[in-house]
Design a protein around this nucleic acid. Structure first.
Lengths: 189, 189
DNA sequence: GTCTATATTAGGATAGAC
DNA sequence: GTCTATCCTAATATAGAC
């Protein structure tokens, strides 16, 4: 599917939600008549489906690559950075994926859920290895460590403004610092 | 507005989204005909509006109360706990408030935005005081500390299951630990 | 590949009886 | 306070010409 179409759809779905977005407005933003859209797709839902699959795959692949190529002590930092850079590079698509995928028909929704679950497991495995290596605390179950990391990563998509003072790599560094060291006043090392 | 109606609406809006939810299904879940709903409200949007205002106010009030009544060193813990208990006590309402308030008409949306902003400022002020008192790190701007705390608190609404092993106070303690001390292996105090 | 015209369905909301 | 019947609008999607 053409990138221009997907970009326009992502932008529209972010603003109106998938259900509230109309093919009228999508066509208008592309300078087409409604009917012309159906040359490129079979249904409005196809757009959401492609956005979700591409979004999920891009995170999963970039984070896997980042983990593999990082030295042992830097895997978490590298993963967080890759996640944040991937999602903010295509912020609309990833925001749509997160908040609208539930509107897919059951079969496709399950497929995206599996991708999501598999990525979450990637993160859990990474955190587990770091716990085993003694670099991460072991008094919090792996499961909750991963969920709280997801909290930190996902909600960022809803407030980050690329026009603000922070660029994605700097934001990633902040998130990493907080996730690893916490917010309390640091004792001098 | 009657609680039974609001509870049914919150549950429906969580599952289908505000736009995707139909008055048909809402009426059915209450054992009424569609038209009968309009004895209690003027439009479907009224439901969303009431849910948003009640949701925002309940957090704001309970957290303010928690901060006031806590001893100096315990304010952040107390605030987090109040926030998490308030939101999970009425999880559907608060999830709807967070993800659906953008579908309010502009005037009402702005009103809810103001409530939201005012609560966020409450949190920032608290964090600022703690930074000034030397209890929280000062190398991360207050603004980002507050945003990352929001990440931790908000996204939780989307995965927490009351049937799981953790009760809200226990989850609050986990979130507090991570926010304050971070995930790295703890040096023995 | 894009258009005009239209089929079809379903939504929110209202009228007015009981 | 709840009902049946209906209005009105707008949505997705299709047919078929150019």
């Amino acid at each position: 599917m053409e990138n221009q179409l997907l970009t326009a759809a992502a932008s529209l779905f972010v603003r109106k939600g998938f259900v509230g977005a109309t093919t009228r407005e999508l066509a208008k933003s592309l300078g087409l008549q409604r009917a012309s859209l159906y040359h490129y797709l079979e249904s409005k839902q196809d757009l959401l489906y492609v956005l979700c699959v591409r979004g999920m795959n891009s995170i999963s692949e970039e984070v896997a690559e980042a983990i593999q190529s990082a030295p042992a002590g830097e895997r978490v930092r590298s993963a967080l950075r890759a996640h944040i850079e991937a999602t903010l590079r295509d912020q609309d698509m990833h925001a749509v994926m997160l908040s609208e995928f539930r509107h897919l028909e059951p079969e496709r929704r399950d497929e995206v859920s599996r991708l999501h679950h598999s990525y979450h497991q990637q993160l859990r495995d990474l955190l587990q290895e770091e716990q085993d290596a003694g670099r991460l605390r072991q008094d919090i179950d792996n499961k909750y460590l991963a969920l709280m990391l997801s909290n930190l990563l996902n909600w960022t998509l809803y407030w980050y403004k690329p026009t603000g003072p922070l660029q994605p790599p700097e934001l990633a560094e902040l998130v990493y610092k907080l996730f690893i060291d916490g917010a309390k006043a640091q004792s001098p090392d």
